[in-house]
């Protein structure tokens, strides 16, 4: 957690938040049990995942193209996978435990190797 935990006599009165946009400090990626893995080879850049992601965790480049998933904030809800219209799907959920110690490239190969 990046947030600094304050004592009872340090918190702002009434739970008021003075610095708007501070939800960025709340790294909701720590909640994740499952994670989506993205396959750029079959992705058609429809941006449905970007539209539906409740945490703005789909990353986009300056040309408006999807570039992957921000795992700092992705809660692993699976809505992007549900919405992905390609057949086979370009986003798939795997258990976080299975992702441990593997690079994104390795995971992609593992998850999508049977699909060409």
């Amino acid at each position: 957690m990046a947030e600094k935990l304050l004592n009872w006599d340090e918190v702002l009165i009434g739970g008021v938040i003075k610095d708007p946009g501070n939800s960025r400090e709340y790294e909701t990626g720590s909640w994740r049990v499952e994670r989506p893995v993205w396959n750029p080879d079959t992705c058609i850049q429809c941006m449905f995942c970007w539209v539906y992601c409740p945490d703005s965790a789909i990353t986009v480049d300056e040309n408006g193209k999807m570039t992957g998933i921000d795992y700092t904030y992705c809660k692993g809800c699976g809505i992007c996978v549900e919405q992905c219209p390609t057949k086979p799907k370009s986003l798939k959920m795997i258990l976080e435990a299975e992702a441990k110690g593997k690079t994104e490239e390795e995971l992609r190969k593992e998850v999508f190797s049977s699909e060409k």
């Binding site: 935990l5 304050l6 004592n7 009872w8 006599d9 340090e10 918190v11 009165i13 009434g14 739970g15």
Partner: peptide, 10 residues
């Protein structure tokens, strides 16, 4: 991790 502190501040 925050609620308790706010209630005691209240």
């Amino acid at each position: 991790n925050w609620y308790f502190e706010h209630k005691m501040n209240q």
